[in-house]
Design a protein around this nucleic acid. Sequence first.
DNA 1: ATTATAATTGAACAACTGTTCAATTGTCAA
DNA 2: TTGACAATTGAACAGTTGTTCAATTATAAT
Lengths: 99, 99
Amino acid sequence: MENIKMPESETLNELSDFFKIMGDGTRLKLLWALETGELCVGDLAALLNMTKSAVSHQLKVLKIAKLVRNRKCGKNVYYALNDHHVKLILEKALEHICE
Amino acid sequence: MENIKMPESETLNELSDFFKIMGDGTRLKLLWALETGELCVGDLAALLNMTKSAVSHQLKVLKIAKLVRNRKCGKNVYYALNDHHVKLILEKALEHICE
DNA sequence: ATTATAATTGAACAACTGTTCAATTGTCAA
DNA sequence: TTGACAATTGAACAGTTGTTCAATTATAAT
């Protein structure tokens, strides 16, 4: 057991930060919804039955994590997935759950 | 956007619970270390430079989540990975980080 | 029996997280 | 410019989380 070498602590932090972000039902729902295409904040709020404020706060978290990007169009702001890996990870995790 | 159907909320909870567990540096290190084979609590504590108590608490979380199993042998308790999917998910997540 | 080592437990504490609320910014239409 | 709508922001709050500490259980050796 002496010679086990841990990965770079920076890598490890990035990994756990990533999982931390995925570890929230609201954010998972947002990502799931955006899988189908871009949606504006109001639509997402209606879909999840939450306030626009709460949704906006979480979208900000997802954006900082570079999991989504946004585009302004008139009064609306449209959000879309920004990473093709997320779908793969969700699928792997689902496999894990469903056994 | 009207007809987006969310996954079963139970499935979603299981998913976010799983990610929540992965979203902690200590637990990630424990899983990483156990990738190489089974280790007892004291070894893990020394490896991560933490108290046995803290490690034991986190191992309990991992055990309840069925990510590890344990086996008693004399005064020691040996822990081992209990799920072959975890490694795959870690790899996918690493791919995501490293780009 | 006694002592020493390994591990677990539960309470307590500080740190962090997600939602709410009220206020604010930005954009369009009248 | 005024009013209405979309979205963002920051402070505040309750709820959750991870580690520490002290006490306890369990096993092995003397």
